[in-house]
Computed example of a mutant assay.
Amino acid sequence: MTDRLVADDAEQPEGLIRAAELLRDGRLVAFGTETVYGLGADATNPLAVARIFEAKERPRFNPLISHFPDSESAFKQVVATPLARKLAEKFWPGPLTLVLPRHPDGEICDLAAAGLPTAAVRVPAQDTALALLRALGRPVAAPSANRSGAVSPSDADHVMDGLAGRIDAVLDTGPCAVGVESTILDLSGDTPRLLRPGGVTVEDIETVIGPVERHHDAREANAPIAPGMLTSHYAPGLPVALDVRSVQPDEALLAFGPPLTGARVLWNLSETGHLDEAASRLFAGLRALDRQGTQAGCSRIVVQPIPDTGLGLAIRDRLGRAAAPRPDADACQDAPSTQEHHVA
């Protein structure tokens, strides 16, 4: 059952306190921002983030916006450029998301960033949302609070229509003031790039930082780009083979459920075969096997079969990219890199 919490006034903040408690416990809470309602989870907890994808029935792990109560908190998680600080001073709190390199000491988990070296951050301009973020004291990953492919929700009724019974609570803050998603601006490269138009116009942005590169590929209209997604972007150094039924002594095994025997190095995504646990451990597992397998002289990473249902689709999507043929070095330098942001 999904609880409907009331965003009470400052003298009776029971709903907000309960929402923060649920988020702290790794649960899912939808809450209103000035743009649309977001489906929130603790961005430092990979299992909680995995539950977002499960509730939304997302077929892929896309990077999510992490929300903060102020720019100082956001810039502890990413490497803030001078342009980022100028934009934050002008437009935060507000409907602007900045994509920046992740800070080496940042707490945003790999799953929230989809394994990318960048993270998307913003400070929403909604009083209750800001109060919730302050009460929690952690980054909150929050894509739009609807099932994959559905219309983004602009009030609590919309959230309940799509996600009742799939999430723990919705914090009802009334209708959203803007009603369209935030603008996404990529500041991780040499030139600022507009990844998605939204609540802050590109013209207003350019009055602060100068020219912004627009992306005109019609195929990307519903899939804004960000650095890092060549087909094989998620590939570790060792080759990857999927759906193996046996293991050789020189192989590193990414297991799911009871592990196959004979691997030199082993990482189990979920010994009990739970897909949410597997999703939360995927990126860490690939990194660990690549590092340990290389040190142990393994020839490749092999992956046990994973169901193609529920979160299994998203897991297999990422593993398929990891196993894809590697482009040559010259092609890597010239090829465009894309990654969808499914965010609020």
Rank of each mutant, 00 (worst) to 15 (best):
D161R: 15
A145R: 01
L23E: 02
G189F: 08
E57P: 03
D127S: 14
V99W: 02
A135V: 04
V200Q: 02
T207I: 06
P197L: 08
L311S: 06
T33E: 03
I65W: 01
L286R: 13
D172K: 10
V159I: 08
A255F: 12
D186G: 03
E203I: 02
F31G: 02
E340S: 07
P336Y: 12
G26N: 04
F75G: 03
L132Q: 05
L132P: 04
G115D: 07
V240S: 01
V208F: 13
E181K: 00
L242H: 00
E72V: 02
P224Y: 02
E57C: 04
S337L: 13
R318K: 09
L253S: 05
D243Y: 14
L100W: 13
A112I: 05
A113M: 08
F31W: 12
P258H: 07
E72T: 07
F91G: 09
A10Q: 11
E271K: 08
E251R: 12
L111M: 14
I17Y: 01
Q333P: 01
A80Q: 06
L116G: 06
Q339A: 14
H216V: 12
P46I: 02
L275Q: 03
I225Y: 06
A120L: 11
D110H: 11
L47D: 02
T183P: 12
A344Q: 08
L282W: 03
R264S: 15
H67N: 01
L130P: 01
A288Y: 09
W267D: 07
G15R: 03
A84K: 02
K76Y: 02
L132G: 09
L64G: 03
F91S: 04
D172I: 06
H233L: 04
A331F: 11
D161E: 15
A324G: 08
G297I: 14
S154L: 00
V78R: 05
R300W: 01
P224K: 05
S270I: 01
D217C: 10
G38K: 04
D25K: 06
P325L: 15
P305W: 12
I184K: 11
D204F: 01
P307I: 09
L319F: 06
R166P: 05
G174I: 09
T128A: 14
K90M: 14
A322C: 11
V151I: 14
P227D: 03
T191W: 12
I209G: 00
V121L: 00
L5E: 10
N146D: 15
Q292K: 15
F75A: 07
P197E: 14
A279P: 15
V170D: 11
A135L: 13
A218K: 09
P95S: 11
G285P: 08
G312H: 13
D3R: 14
D25R: 05
R122L: 02
E54V: 00
D105I: 00
